[in-house]
Structures are given as C-alpha cells and as structure tokens.
Amino acid sequence: MQVLIVEDDAALGLFLQKGLKLEGHQVEWVGDGEAALEWMRERRPDLLVLDLSLPNRDGLEVLQEMQGHFDETAILVLTGRSMLEERVRCLNLGADDCMLKPFSFHELTARCRALMRRRDRYADPVLRHGDVELNRMERSVTRNGVEVELTGKEFSLLEYLIQRKERCCNRAELLQAVWQMSADASTNVVDVYVNYVRKKLGAAGGSDDAGHAVIETVRGEGYRMGSSGGERKQPGRAQVYSVGSTWAQGAPR
C-alpha cells in the first residue's frame, strides 16, 4: 500500500514514516500542505495520513482541494486540538477517520488497516491491464489465465506500473516507490527487474516479445504499461524502444 504522511513536525513525520514502512507499506513524508497536494496529484496514494496544522495550506485546505478528486484515497486526519467542530468539518470534507494526538502507534496502524479493509471491501482487488490480472489481496498474477510467479519486488513493480495505467514512470520514481531507495542511487536494479517481469509475463504469453509489449520502454524516460494492453502486437506495428537494446542488464548492482 502506498501511503503519504503530511506532518510538519519532523520528528513525528519521520517516525510515522519509519513505523509504517515496518508494516510493509511504501511511505513518503512531506511537511506542508502545498507539497502534499503536489505529491497527491502525481502519485495518488492509497492512504493519506494528514496533520491539520501545516504551513503552506493547512490540513483543512488540503481536504477542500482534494474533495471529489481523490475518491480512491483513504484519509486519516491527525489533530492535536480537541475541538469537536474541527473533526466534524474534516469528516464532512472527505476524511474517513480522525485521531486525536497523542495516540499510540498500535492504534494508528490498526486504524490504517481498518480503513484499507473498508476500502478493499468496496474496491475490486484485481488490477487489470489487457490480458494481465494482478490480484492485490491474493498477491497473485495471471496472464491469459496462466499463473505468473513473481517475487515480492517484481509484484510491487508490476503493481505500481499497472496502477499508473499508461503513464510513464521514470527510474528514479520506481527506485523510490518500489525499492525505497534514493532517486539518484547508482543502480540498474529497475532495468533488471523490469526484464525479469517481462520474461515471466512473456513466458506466460508465449514468447519473450510478449513481455516487452506489456511493459514498454519510453526512450530516455522510463517505463509504462503497454498501450496494446498486454495483448500481442501485430508484426510491423511500430515498437517502442526496448530495454534490452542499450540499457544495462544482467544482475542488479
């Protein structure tokens, strides 16, 4: 699950980030309302943990701005003020739950899980792209009904790309979101894992090329799910630049 924490207190923000990462989530932390909105527009997380007292647009303004545009994101509001009216306002603006500080870490994680359970009950756990189906609940992937066995990281990579539909994701973004590594880390791990996933999807689709059609390389930019929707392309159709041609491959380094 992708989580965004918006908290201006650095100690608390970093702590929450660390704690939720230990729960197995992909977690980012930003310290003000403007940065939160920017991040939301780019990444559309599954869960937003939002403090109300923020610089550059407070939590209420962030909620107002988000209204109607981020229905798929669950919102947990954190507040240090005990005013009932404030909490009611947050809920009316689209927050799913409010927690009063100080709170226990166990309660926070339990509430996050409860929110996601509630979302998942109404949301289809299966992400689809052409003939590829990824089940987030069962952590399984099939192509044309054939099971594709992926490792944890391979699954997270494919999940991230499918969620972004056909939007191009650059290597830095994938490094941060899937591997929780610095954007400027000197590693070819993204390219290598894209190839692993392609090979496995290709095998399920009948050939290695079939894997390349599912995850396309956007030259000089990054990767995205193929516009052909994972179905095999017809010969002669223009192909996007393939990772196998020049980008470094082999073992991750």
Partner: peptide
C-alpha cells in the same frame, strides 16, 4: 492553554510511538 496543549501533543505522540516501535 489550547495552543500549549496542542504543542504538547506533538512530543507526547512521538514519545509514545517511539517507545512502542522500539519494543516491537
């Protein structure tokens, strides 16, 4: 008092959560 209580909640939350995480 409302302002100070609000300010007090920040370190109290970190304190509580930090110890819980260490224990975990």
């Amino acid at each position: 008092m409302d302002d100070l209580l609000h300010a007090l909640c920040q370190p109290l939350t970190v304190l509580q959560c930090r110890l819980a995480l260490g224990e975990l």
